[in-house]
Design a protein around this nucleic acid. Structure first.
Length: 799
RNA sequence: GCCGAAAUGGUGGAAUGGCAGACGCGACGGACUCAAAAUCCGUUGAUGGCAACAUCGUGUGGGUUCAAGUCCCACUUUCGGCACCA
């Protein structure tokens, strides 16, 4: 009898061995194929690791360990995305410096990660708040600035009065601050933007060849939101003046049905007709109202359309020559298209609603719907009517015909637009990368000299935010005041810092050469590691981080820093672990599971096993504390196999099938079924009563990526000290996957009636013979048809 | 409103169109024990039947097929994303 399984003891032993001997350290090695596996590096919060992290990291951990056993040279790194608000807020609350808080949190994370036995190359650890790191974040920003892709612009921004910080659109969805949940207000501010819209088309097209989960592609496509249409010029007449008003439409085919025109309340056209507009006071009131409405109300709460007719001006339809009235309404947004639309109520739901409310004419130009009841969109179906030369055409034909006609007349041009907005790239907070720009009264915005990077974040005693939405850095006059690198005159530094998305937009490159002081990424290292082979992360980051980092990589490709336009070849996503109550884990719900507690009770291997066994990896699954026992029992059973090792006939246990299943399932992230297969195989082994050493070794190796401690220990014990990580991933014998004799179901008229045992390659006649012999179901029956699928089923249709 | 994913026992979840419920949890019965825990063995979709067995059963209603959880059509609900995007 061997000693009992003691996870605490063996896990400590193996972790010490791995980390002290740097077993997972990696260097470029041309003699071996490379594999670069990436996980989203964590934000080191004070709360420490969460079981969700474990699940998120475990897929690439398993794949990386498997790849090593398969002979690959594996880069599997870890780092910390450590700039950001929570740390800063916590630091303010506890009166510590964010640097101290960050360092402590990182230490805590590292201890926890090591206690789980992850096979990271710890020597490559990076930290976005490290000067040697953010030097290069700033360097990339400078290149963007020099290429005209970073600009400052006055706009209304989402401002959180609680966090006192300007938020990106994506951080203030539904008009609520992502961080604190308070209501966001609109504030005018000078803000840095990155011209990500310039890359919209390439970001969209680049998706085609990538092995990203389909739903990730779809979300990115929706986020980018490309629409193809045309800009059409209407002429506004009033008070003897003419004004060319350009509207944006995706449906030029419906122009014969345009019965009015709507401009956004902010549209400059209104002001230019100030003198000729009869109801200008009313219009001004409406503009004021629209301005007061927060974005949230305007978009989400305004169930009913509102608007005002602009008296004294009319618009001329460039195709029909007809005069139509002009309205202003806040359902038209200034920041999309041209801020003006031609309204076709018969074929657009919003225009329909507006026309009904203000009793405007509705002209049907596409047959097929019932415009008495509702607008008929008819994107793919329907035939044009009441539309001059378009009559009789289908909608797609009419779109092409009208676009060409407008172009010929010179009143319209094809135009694509994107929903995605430029990336608001700054925060008025302390704990972020300083923006390396100097404002000179003579020379304007001047980039810092690259030689002077990093621009170090000054040590600050009081870094709490200011009430006037300016950065705490503006208080450090000795830091702010500097000289202009161009003219040498007195100048001031930019005091805003970069958003948290900055550091994470290029971290996958830094891992390739984490300590290189001369390059963003060392060219030799890049040449070897190239693209990330497989990136796993959360669905919550596929529209922001994943697009932002693809954008930065494309830019670095354009300026010759990297040689691949796309950073990630494959991207998968894990499902959330929900609380035992089926709700998302959160402190406020008090349903958070701390991995330390699980390790304490069951050990790290059980934790690793359970987070992967809990359900389909790509779907969310609730944490069931009772079910952990099953995983613990299984590891005990695995351990106790040592008591029944015996050489013998290997029949009855299909180890080849098990290897194949595990091999395939790992590659498609079906860890739950891979584990189930191994459990079944172990059950079969106990049923048989003994395990052969060769079977046992194979089992240990295929399980090693998931439960490395116990498998390392058993392997060492049964093989006189041999190390499992030096072994080869087992192959399986194709010919042994299928059995020679099979038990197949017998159906009569599609209903299960019994089973027969036949050779896997038995003929139809043999199978039918076997049915006759072993069952009496065919007696007195008239056979009409026999369906026989070799090795699968026999179904007899009979009366 | 638009786009996407999903719905299977008491429960988490398995099923290239071919035995629905693998594997795990729980429950029940038994062994071991003074007892409990741990462990081991057995049972466990529902209904009827002593039983062999029969009937029903994968959100709802239709359809295709020798055969449907799986494919097609029409719905319902839940979750995620986008959203007066012209």
């Amino acid at each position: 009898m061997t000693k009992v399984y003691n996870p605490k003891e063996i896990e400590k032993k193996w972790q010490e061995y791995w980390y002290a001997n740097k077993v997972f350290e990696t260097t470029e090695d041309d003699s071996r194929k490379k594999f670069y596996g990436l996980i989203e590096f964590p934000y080191p919060s004070g709360a420490g690791l969460h079981v969700g992290h474990i699940r998120a990291f475990s897929s690439m951990e398993v794949i990386s360990r498997k790849r090593r056993l398969q002979g690959y040279n594996v880069l599997f790194p870890i780092g910390y995305d450590a700039f950001g608000l929570p740390t800063e807020n916590y630091a303010i609350k506890t009166k510590q410096h964010p640097r101290i808080v960050t360092d402590n949190n990182i230490k805590k994370f590292e201890t926890q990660l090591k206690a789980i036995g992850y096979s990271f190359d710890w020597d490559r650890t990076i930290d976005t708040t490290d000067e040697g790191y953010y030097k290069w974040t700033q360097w990339i920003f400078l290149q963007l600035f020099k290429k005209g892709l970073a600009y400052k612009s006055k706009t209304l921004v989402n401002f959180c009065p609680e966090c006192k910080v300007v938020l990106a659109n994506e951080e203030s969805q539904n008009g609520v601050c992502d961080r604190c949940g308070s209501e966001v207000i609109q504030k005018e501010k000078d803000v840095w933007f990155l011209r990500i819209r310039n890359y919209a088309d390439r970001l969209l097209e680049g998706l085609t060849d990538l092995d990203f989960l389909e739903k990730i592609k779809v979300e990115q496509q929706n986020w980018i939101g490309k629409s193809c249409g045309a800009e059409v010029e209407f002429t506004i007449k009033g008070g003897g003046k003419e004004y060319p008003l350009v509207v944006y439409t995706t449906r030029p085919d419906t122009i014969y049905g345009a019965t009015f025109l709507v401009v956004s309340p902010e549209h400059p056209m209104i002001q230019s007709f100030a003198g000729s507009i009869g109801n200008f006071d009313e219009i001004r009131d409406y503009q004021q109202q629209a301005k007061l409405k927060k974005e949230f109300e305007r978009v989400h709460l305004a169930k009913e359309k509102s608007g005002v007719r602009i008296d004294g001006i009319t618009a001329v339809n460039p195709i029909t020559g007809c005069d139509i009235p002009v309205f202003t309404a806040d359902y038209v947004m200034m920041d999309y298209g041209t801020g003006a639309i031609m309204a076709v109520p018969a074929h657009d739901t919003r225009d329909y609603e507006f026309a009904k409310k203000y009793s405007l004419p509705i002209i049907e130009v596409i047959k097929g719907g019932d415009i008495e009841k509702e607008a008929y969109i008819a994107k793919d179906g329907g035939i044009m009517v009441n539309s001059g030369f378009l009559n009789g055409l289908s909608v797609p034909e009419a779109i092409d015909a009208m676009t060409a006609y407008m172009k010929k007349l010179g009143v319209g041009t094809p135009k694509t637009d994107f929903k995605m907005k430029d990336w608001a790239f700054n925060r008025q907070r302390y704990w972020g990368e300083p923006i390396p720009i100097i404002n000179c009264p003579k020379c304007g915005q001047v980039p810092m000299d690259e030689k002077d990077l990093p621009l170090v974040l000054p040590k600050l005693e009081d870094f709490s935010p200011t009430d006037d939405a300016s950065s705490p850095l503006s208080k450090v006059t000795e830091w702010v005041n500097t000289t202009c690198p161009v003219c040498g005159g007195p100048a001031t530094r930019e005091t805003d810092t970069m958003p948290q998305w900055a550091g994470s937009s290029w971290y996958y490159l830094r891992y390739m050469s984490p300590r290189d002081g001369e390059h963003v990424v060392n060219p030799e290292a890049y040449k070897y590691w190239g693209q990330v082979d497989w990136y796993n992360g959360g669905m919550e980051h596929v529209t922001r981080h994943l697009i932002y980092s693809r954008f930065w990589n494309m830019f670095l490709y354009d300026i010759g820093v990297v040689t691949n336009a796309e950073p990630y070849l494959r991207r998968s996503a894990q499902g959330l672990i929900l609380g035992a109550d089926g709700e998302k884990m959160s402190k406020s719900r008090n349903n958070v599971v701390n991995p330390d507690d699980v390790i304490k009770e069951y050990g790290a291997d059980v934790l690793r096993l359970f987070t992967l066994f809990i359900g389909d990896y790509e779907k969310s699954a609730p944490w069931n504390p009772d079910a952990i026992k099953g995983c613990s029992r299984f590891l005990n059973k695995l351990w106790n196999l040592m008591d029944i090792i015996k050489e013998g006939d290997v029949a009855d246990v299909n180890i080849d099938l098990c290897i194949k299943k595990v091999d395939d399932d790992f590659e498609s992230l079906k860890f739950n079924t891979a584990i189930a297969q191994v459990m079944s195989t172990v059950n079969d082994i106990y049923q048989r009563g003994y395990v052969t050493k060769s079977e046992f070794k194979k089992l240990l190796i295929i399980l090693n990526p998931i439960v490395p401690h116990i498998t390392s220990e058993i392997y060492e014990i049964i093989n006189g000290g041999a190390k499992i990580e030096r072994q080869k991933w087992p192959s399986y014998d194709e010919s042994k996957l299928a059995k020679d004799e099979v038990d197949i179901p017998v159906q009569l008229n599609g209903k299960l009636k019994g089973r027969i045992t036949v050779s896997a390659t038995a003929s139809r006649e043999d199978a039918l013979e076997a049915v006759n012999k072993s069952t009496g179901i065919l007696e007195g029956k008239n056979i009409i048809k026999v369906i026989y699928v070799e090795g699968k089923i026999i179904n007899i249709v009979a009366r």
